[in-house]
């Protein structure tokens, strides 16, 4: 077993894990952070996306041991207390989720997009999200929610 120290959503965490355990396994099974979902375990669906150093990462493709010294944001860390992130507000307002299983990964991924590119085109949003599968919505309302959020955040910036 390996001992790991890391920062998740601003909180310091220490855990031990098997060398074969993924970061996703650790988050869900050892730390109780079940917001990130396992849809495939092979990096194809993006439901387990977390943000590490400003980049969206499939936590199922990273080992728990690799979290040593990292700063990680999961879907549980997007809102500021009771105040939802504008993306979260707009996903609800625009009905951008049906079952909601892909939502945590998509929120984390789009938050990283808007931090990198506050004024994305529809095509840019679509390609950025090409690694996050949604089977319910046909993406239409997701794209609209992201574009609306980007516009709002630009106005308020």
């Amino acid at each position: 077993m390996i001992q790991v120290s890391t920062t998740i959503n601003g909180d310091e965490h220490q855990f031990v894990c098997d060398p074969r355990e993924t970061l996703l396994d650790v988050l869900r099974d050892r730390l109780g952070l079940t917001g990130a979902k396992e849809g495939c375990g092979t990096g194809d669906c993006g439901a387990c996306t977390v943000e590490i150093g400003g980049r969206p990462v499939c936590s199922c493709l990273m080992l728990g041991a690799e979290a040593e010294g990292k700063e990680i944001t999961t879907v549980e860390g997007i809102a500021d207390g009771e105040d939802l992130h504008p993306l979260q507000v707009n996903f609800i307002k625009h009905a951008a989720l049906q079952c909601g299983i892909c939502t945590p990964g998509i929120l984390v991924a789009t938050k990283a997009l808007l931090e990198e590119n506050p004024n994305p085109t529809e095509t840019e949003v679509r390609y950025w999200l090409a690694g996050n599968l949604c089977r319910c919505t046909g993406y239409d309302k997701i794209i609209r929610a992201v574009m609306e959020t980007a516009a709002e955040m630009r106005e308020n910036a």
């Binding site: 917001g35 549980e76 997007i78 609800i92 307002k93 909601g100």
Partner: peptide
């Protein structure tokens, strides 16, 4: 009308509990 869904906040904050989320 188009009100917000009641499970919306749970689902955008990671709180909603799916099949694999219980222990």
């Amino acid at each position: 009308t188009r009100p917000d869904r009641p499970d919306g906040i749970d689902k955008v904050t990671g709180r909603a509990s799916y099949g694999a989320d219980a222990s």
